[in-house]
Design a protein around this nucleic acid. Structure first.
Length: 307
DNA sequence: AACATTTTCAACCGCAGTGAT
DNA sequence: GATCACTGCGGTTGAAAATGT
């Protein structure tokens, strides 16, 4: 153990008494009640004062990742997954920063999601998870599928969930817009029964809406409560975004232009993208392991249907 | 049912940044 | 400016749970 780690234990004479490993209910209860009375912070002192035989660090982690009342539990929604993908493409492994935009989700949870789900996909595609190829694949397949799932499960109150989720920064430009400003989700890519084709549109007022009929927009829209933020990230391929027109860079010098409000607009669905994209660059490992069918469980998004 | 393998995720570690002394 | 204590972040680990054979 390093000297720093020893220092973290703060009092060597107490080192042997410090507990490690999984927290017990009793410890959690002690921590909750202490914080309820005295608030959080000053973790080393808190640990001692609360009578916990834990390091301050351990207390902080347990509180922030598990015990804090506003922690959201359960699977990440498609909306949240989509946001993680998008924000990661901009900021990389800035888990804490990404978590700030997902209320109730912790950096640890997002990090775990990325490592266990997203990187797994990358491995199975035989591409590096941070590479441009992977980002392209995410945008061409995963994001449209997530958007479709969002649309399919368009719960009774999409407004509230998306408004919460989209409560981003205020530097002025859209992040979700890069993949959702206006493009079609073609249900043919995954379903034998075909609901009407729908479009995702974001207007100048950050209204993010879906439309089954572009002339007569449906009411199932939601609004970004603040202008969305985008920031430079070297790993992110360039997006062209002007006047709510999004062009996807799907290959070098080749863009999918979503500048079309009509039903004949260019599809962004995976099947169509497949027609355009040169997938010979991917070394798909489809034989034997069935990754496309089973790799994501309920969140199987890159399935054989889509391919 | 039993065992093996894989997946998940809570917890730990080391490091960097910051403020106080 | 040097040192120390503390906090927060990102990477990693390993036990438990889930899944496969």
């Amino acid at each position: 153990m390093s000297t720093i780690a020893k220092r973290d234990l703060s009092c060597n004479e107490e080192e042997s008494e410090l507990r490690r490993g999984p927290w017990t209910l009793e410890e959690g209860s002690l921590l909750i009640h202490y914080i309820a009375r005295h608030g959080e912070g000053r973790w080393n002192m808190l640990a001692k004062s609360a009578g916990l035989k834990r390091t301050g660090k351990s207390c902080r982690l347990r509180w922030l990742n598990y015990l804090k009342p506003d922690i959201k539990r359960g699977n990440l929604t498609p909306q949240e997954q989509l946001l993680i993908l998008e924000l990661h493409s901009k900021w990389g492994n800035r888990w804490s920063k990404i978590a700030q935009h997902l209320p109730g989700r912790t950096d640890n949870e997002i990090k775990n999601y990325w490592r266990t789900r997203v990187q797994k996909q990358a491995r199975q595609l035989n591409i590096e998870s941070g590479s441009k190829r992977f980002i392209d694949a995410v945008k061409c397949f995963w994001m449209p599928r997530l958007l479709q799932k969002m649309e399919q499960s368009n719960s009774p109150s999409p407004h509230s969930s998306m408004t919460t989720m989209m409560n981003l920064g205020n530097s002025g430009e859209a992040s979700m817009s890069s993949m959702s400003s206006n493009f079609n989700i073609n249900p043919s890519m995954s379903s034998s029964s075909s609901p009407p084709q729908r479009k995702f549109i974001m207007d100048d007022a950050n209204h993010f809406s879906t439309m089954s009929n572009p002339i007569n927009p449906s009411p199932d829209s939601f609004q970004f409560s603040q202008p969305l933020e985008i920031s430079e990230h070297p790993k992110s391929p360039p997006n062209v975004f002007e006047n709510n027109v999004c062009s996807y860079p799907i290959q070098d010098n080749c863009y999918l232009d979503t500048n079309n409000y009509g039903m004949e607009g260019i599809n962004m669905d995976p099947l169509s993208a497949m027609d355009t994209y040169d997938f010979s660059q991917f070394d798909f490992q489809t034989a034997g392991n069935g990754w496309m069918l089973d790799s994501m469980g309920d969140s199987t998004l890159w399935n054989m249907d889509a391919m």
